[in-house]
Amino acid sequence: MFLNRVLPRNMLLSSRSIATKTITPAISAIFFKPEVQELLLNLTRIDLSKVFRRQKYGQVFEPPEYKFLTTEEVEKLQKESYERAVKKMQVPPIVPPRDDSKLEKLSYDPEILGHDVSKYVFTDITFGISDPKRIIVVREPDGLLREANTFERHRMNSVYFSRPECTLKHPEMFEEENLKSLCNRKEYVFILDRACTQFEPDDGLYHNILNTTFNHIHENNGFELLRSSRHFGSLVFFLCNNNMIDNLLLQNLHCNMMEDAVWLIKVYQFVNPEAKCAQMKHIEGQDVAFVQSYIDQDSPTKERLTQALESYSDVASVSM
């Protein structure tokens, strides 16, 4: 009964039911490579009208400004706004989840067993230290002095250094049932934005929420909803990491987005250097052959993809 209150049981999504790979440090390092970042940004397909759309989160809007500008000035402003959009589209970091079973034990003094019935949590509030680097330690009633786990860290950080967008208790929308109903209503961007502000990127709960959402998107082909949002990159990376890129590739082929298909397979090659098609190099102008090599060697659903590729090349040859 005591442990039920300590652990947020309802928050813990059953990660066993979703067969996904956990993020290892090696994969995280691949994500931070500049080439991969560039590919993910290209795949996002930035649409300025979608990036700077009005998001109704309760703020007061100001009326739009109208100006008379020359063509050069308009081009300059458009360039600036594109740069702002690129900054906004930065993919949230993908880092391995913090392992709570390997907390560092700083000292163990069994002589003070029973000094108090409750734990003591000590937080270092020294000025100018970031949340993940802050020293937070816990003295247990049995005399063990250890590092704080993820949940404790989150609570202490939000008690002493609160942010308006991050609540002390995790919102109810991240509980399993509510998350499912949100996914069924296709509110993917809302879930991912909220999770991004609420959790640290190395939180296990955050990883579970992303996994369930991305799985739902993959099963229901909702890729288009995430396009030109900052989460499309993490979606692509997730799919590549779990060898599930076929649905997205199929959609790309149906929509005649050959460039995107090539970029997608390039990311796949980066993430899976041991895959059979990883040796294949992309030569400009031979996109179809490049995609074909992936389909032949690594794809789990070959027939559908080959058909789609054939129909694409037929259409392309006719239009040529």
Binding site: K119, Y120, V121, D124, T126, E152
Partner: peptide
């Protein structure tokens, strides 16, 4: 006074 998770909270400005 302990909170709902049976913790007593202490904050220390270690540098000072």
């Amino acid at each position: 006074s302990a909170n709902e998770f049976h913790e007593k909270l202490v904050s220390l400005n270690i540098e000072r």
